[in-house]
Nucleic acid binder design. Structure first.
Length: 989
RNA sequence: GCGGAUGUGGCGUAAUGGCAGCCGCGCCAGACUUAGGAUCUGGUGCCGUAAGGCGUGGGGGUUCGAGUCCCUUCAUCCGCACCA
């Protein structure tokens, strides 16, 4: 009888669950190993075949480590706060909690069918009050902390207050935007509100007026990484810039550490590079320009710019301010006021998307004001341009058109002079381009003349600092992380307002539960949904903060919660944290490069600063699995309407007809003509039909009703009510052919393939092996099931190796040397592959191994028992079944297991999960002779076998004496003979 | 524009600087047969009857020897992008 995967998989899944086979103990004499997957957001579409890719890989690794004698923590949970459930709630009124719970139940069911070795006793859900209690708790710690630049870490806010009381803020070096200094007596005289305002400038969680990405359709602000190409990542709605009072986290305080600590991490270079890019460290100089006095002679202060090229100071021909710059209003002359006001209104009205779409479009306006060049004393005009960003540097730049391409474009557009002050080392046409490189010799630059660029930068910084014009400064592209979302389905921010002063809840008041609301929409006055909650007041009196935390809050520390998931005294116990430390192997998608992976590092460093955890990084090693893309299917709908402009019964045209060039369409016109004539009397011939490509609309169709591009027409008619009576124009053979395209797998594209079908039809082990067999883990690839039969056959072949018909057929005789060679070769390969995360090559090694053993007709226990263990990480169900069959003495246990009668402690020992990974004995791999490839000028011509112990010199002698060698030498003497011992012989003629 | 990655049969892919194409799919031929999406055997990079020749996106280089290292160029994918 064939291997019955359905029965076997079901049996063992029930057994593992009943006996908690994968439960992890916190205290163990074994070394620890923490394997973590990025937990999923439980979406309504369920698990698709892309999800398990990473999970299977991490599961293999976790199982391997168990076999290698490690105490493995391999948990799973859900990132269960988020937008889709809330959008669904808005549409249907169903509480997001219900939606989320349903989705989680479905995910769990799907995950269970794949045979993962997760310790479900440690499951976390970010939307669980027992979990988000601690998310809120960490927020409170952030609120109660400031960043001390002297000690280079976060400290309790009390230390800061104590210093203020003693000496004001003069000696404080903090990550802070506040520039005014105050003395201790000032501080002591401040009102409570003043103190609160001052402290907000220092707190790591703080409230401030900031430019935010506002998405009107979603009714919320978004973080920078939630905005892609000017539209929201979720939903694709337009995003605009807006000034709002918002909670933020001072991640910029950690910019330098987040950057430098990357070097020591075993993460892929591309992720590290993406983070470096995102943090965007840039070293330069701040520089003050005095504003030329007004015609009335009054001084008007200074404009401060940031530049990385202070050496180009003599090439400055104008200064540009961002439209939002605070000096704009003050500077603008009466004559220019109208133009400037118009420009600023225009700049504001442009959405982010428009602004980004026409990056090349140069806009700007002259303010009418001038600054005085600090060295030449000449007047330099001040312009406004939206190529200057308000949020970066000082929001103002000194423009050097000859040596900066953006300034160049601006100057060209407005006809401003360019001053060439660097002699490029190569021929350069300044009529065509600016010369931006940091090389060349300074000219027309007074005391910098003759210096090379690098030397000039050094010298000018010294001069600038000496004259007090500015100083060396480092800027980061990284912005503080906006933390409030005007949404319902998230963690409430544990803050209330007492007389306008924000205050945090105390620990024993946590969790601050998410209140019930009547609708999940903003209020009529534009307040977030939480403002709808009835009688929701702190101590019945004070208003709570109405915004909730962003999606990334809960995921920024979850790895710690797995260590001690049910603790209600702390986010995790000290013992658990000290034992588990941090994640040894983290597997997840590369799309989190600048979001989640930056935030989780930030929170880890923060918690470390407070002495709460011993590590400064969340994960030692990170692997990014590739994305499994979907192959979308399309139908081509012929667009037409009746005389009232209403669409009538849909007509779908098969791909090859729809995509035919225009001239070939006569038949189609006639065909559609006939159909229309027979169906609709109102049709006027020739009036509405002009066949052109735009007559077709291409629409996604559910890939599950398409097979090899052929549409299941009946299923399609039932798919949507409006297609019930649809008409199909098929290919000649009667098939309707769909178009196809590779796209990201998503519900909206109807290309989601769930793993369920494969598990149902081929088994979980087959899915696991096949997903690994697909190719290197880190590579993205479109999903395709062609080839799965190879894996399926392999599993049956493996089974037959252990069985004769229905009976187990195992011999206790000693194995032969070739059999042992095959086994040990495989042991070595599998161990190497797993450690290199090369799971695809493992699968082919298994195939080779089973093919060879089948050929040997090997049924020796000495070989087949270790083989079962090797297979166990990849195909745990069949391996477990073989294991118990190999050990008939476990029969009683097996029977009891079916009844769920066995104590967990007892069963664990009998599960293959806790067997010992076999050790490769190299002795079996070595052959006594080696078959040398004999090559001439690098081309292999024939082979010759020699004893491995034969020396290089003797091999050379022997080879040269061979008849075949003489044949290829054609009587000539070899110029050179290279013998690489036990590898190759190359004869150069 | 900057950064990261990838280019190998019909397809997915494999090769510590040492026989290019392992393993699988597909395809071809055959065996068995209760006719199946089963199993087994053989073949399958391209050109050529063969001997042989040509082959890892293109060009160049290092080397006895290059898919692999170096330079250059092209193509595709991903991330960031007016960051001064």
């Amino acid at each position: 009888m064939e291997y019955d995967f359905r029965e076997v998989e079901k049996k063992w899944q029930a057994y593992w669950a009943a006996n908690k086979t994968y439960r992890t103990e916190d205290n163990s004499s074994k070394p620890k190993y923490f394997v973590l997957d990025m937990f999923p957001y439980p979406s309504g579409a369920g698990l698709h075949v892309g999800h398990p890719l990473g999970y299977i890989a991490s599961d293999i690794f976790a199982r391997y480590k168990r076999l290698k004698g490690f105490n493995v923590l391999h948990p799973m949970g859900y990132d269960s706060f988020g937008l889709p459930a809330e959008q669904y709630a808005i549409q249907t009124g169903q509480h997001p909690r219900i939606t989320t719970e349903n989705n989680i139940a479905r995910y769990r069911e799907q995950l269970d069918k794949i045979g993962f070795s997760f310790d479900w006793d440690r499951e976390v859900r970010t939307s669980d009050p027992q979990y988000y209690k601690w998310t809120q708790w960490i927020f409170i710690q952030l609120f109660n902390s400031w960043y001390n630049k002297k000690s280079n870490k976060a400290e309790k806010i009390e230390t800061l207050i104590a210093e203020f009381e003693k000496a004001g803020n003069a000696n404080i070096k903090a990550a802070c935007e506040l520039t005014e200094t105050f003395s201790s007596s000032d501080w002591n005289a401040f009102s409570e509100k003043d103190r609160s305002d001052v402290l907000l400038n220092y707190r790591l969680a703080f409230l401030s007026n900031t430019m935010v990405n506002w998405c009107p359709q979603l009714g919320t602000v978004l973080a920078n990484e939630e905005v892609k190409e000017g539209v929201s990542e979720r939903g694709g709605y337009p995003v605009e810039r807006k000034l709002m009072k918002q909670w933020s986290l001072r991640i910029t305080a950690y910019a330098d550490r987040l950057l430098t600590d990357l070097d020591a991490l075993d993460w892929t270079e591309s992720i590290k590079e993406a983070q470096r890019n995102w943090i965007g460290k840039s070293e330069g100089t701040s520089l003050k320009f005095t504003i030329a006095p007004s015609p009335e002679g009054e001084g008007r202060g200074e404009v401060e710019v940031f530049t990385t090229r202070p050496d180009t100071i003599f090439g400055v021909s104008f200064v540009t301010l961002a439209p939002e710059h605070e000096l704009v209003e003050k500077l603008t002359t009466p004559e220019q006021k109208k133009a400037v006001d118009e420009y600023i209104t225009l700049a504001k009205s442009r959405s982010e998307r428009e602004r980004m779409a026409d990056v090349k479009k140069i806009t700007g306006v002259f303010t009418g004001a001038y600054v005085i060049h600090p060295f030449t004393e000449k007047q330099v005009p001040i312009w406004i341009g939206d190529y200057v960003l308000a949020g970066y540097g000082t929001g103002a730049v000194m423009a050097v058109p000859a040596h900066d391409s953006r300034d160049y474009a601006f100057a060209n557009h407005f006809g401003i002079d360019k001053l060439i002050i660097i002699q490029p080392p190569v021929e350069w046409d300044f009529e065509k381009n600016s010369f931006d490189e940091k090389e060349g010799t300074l000219i027309n630059s007074d005391f910098l003349n003759g210096l090379e660029v690098k030397a000039a930068i050094k010298k000018i910084i010294a001069v600038i600092e000496e004259r007090g014009l500015g100083k060396g400064k480092t800027n980061f592209r990284l912005r503080d992380a906006i933390f409030g979302r005007q949404r319902y389905w998230g963690e409430p921010i544990p803050v209330y307002y007492e007389n306008g002063i924000p205050k945090v809840l105390s620990e024993n008041e946590l969790p601050l539960l998410l209140p019930e609301v009547d609708k999940y929409l903003p209020t009529e006055t534009g307040e977030p949904p939480l403002a709808r909650a009835k009688d929701w007041k702190y101590k019945g009196e004070f208003e709570y903060e109405y915004s909730t935390m962003p999606g990334w809050a809960g995921s920024s520390w979850y790895f710690l919660r797995y260590m001690d998931a049910h603790n209600d005294k702390a986010f995790a116990s000290k013992e658990a944290i000290d034992y588990w430390q941090n994640v040894d192997l983290y597997i997840g998608g590369a799309e989190h490069a600048t979001g989640h992976l930056l935030y989780i590092r930030f929170w880890t460093k923060f918690l470390n600063d407070l002495g709460l955890i011993p590590v400064t990084e969340p994960a030692k090693k990170l692997i990014n699995q590739g994305m499994i893309q979907g192959v979308s299917a399309f139908v081509y709908r012929f667009i037409y309407s009746d005389e009232n402009g209403k669409p009538t019964i849909p007509i779908f045209v098969s791909k090859n007809i729809a995509l035919k060039p225009l001239n070939d369409d006569v038949n189609l016109i006639n065909k559609i003509d006939d159909i229309i004539h027979s169906q609709f009397s109102f049709y006027e011939k020739g009036k509405r039909f002009h066949l052109a490509p735009h007559n077709f609309s291409k629409a996604h169709v559910d890939v599950n009703i398409v097979n090899n591009d052929i549409l299941d027409i009946e299923a399609f008619k039932n798919w949507r009510e409006e297609y019930k009576d649809a008409i199909f124009i098929t290919e000649e053979n009667g098939n309707y052919i769909c178009g196809s395209e590779v796209e990201k797998m998503s519900k909206s594209k109807w290309n989601v393939v769930s793993p369920d079908k494969i598990v149902e039809e081929q088994g979980a082990d087959c899915l696991r092996l096949y997903e690994m067999f697909l190719g290197p883990l880190e590579q993205s690839k479109p999903w395709s099931t062609s080839g799965i039969s190879g894996v399926s056959n392999f599993i049956r072949k493996l089974w037959r190796l252990y069985h004769n018909g229905d009976e187990l057929n195992i011999s206790n005789e000693p194995a032969t040397r070739p059999e042992l060679k095959t086994l040990h070769k495989t042991i070595k390969k599998i161990a190497q592959d797993i450690e290199n995360f090369s799971f695809n090559t493992s699968v082919s090694s298994f195939m080779i191994c089973v093919n060879e053993l089948t050929e040997f007709k090997c049924n020796k226990r000495e070989v087949l028992e270790p083989l079962a263990i090797l297979m166990a990480p990849y195909a745990p169900h069949i391996a477990e079944e073989l294991w118990i069959r190999l050990h008939p003495e476990f029969e009683a246990i097996r029977n009891n297991a079916k009844l769920g009668l066995i104590k967990p402690t007892l069963t664990k020992e009998f599960s293959i999960t806790y067997a010992t990974f076999p050790i490769c004995n190299e002795d079996y791999l070595v052959e006594s002779s080696f078959n040398y490839p004999i090559s001439f000028n690098g081309k292999t011509r024939f082979f010759q076998e020699y004893d491995r112990s034969l020396s290089k010199e003797d091999v050379e002698k022997e080879v040269l004496n061979l008849d075949q060698t003489q044949k290829y030498l054609e009587g000539k003497a070899p110029k050179k003979v290279i013998v690489v011992h036990n590898k190759i012989v190359n004869i150069v003629i």
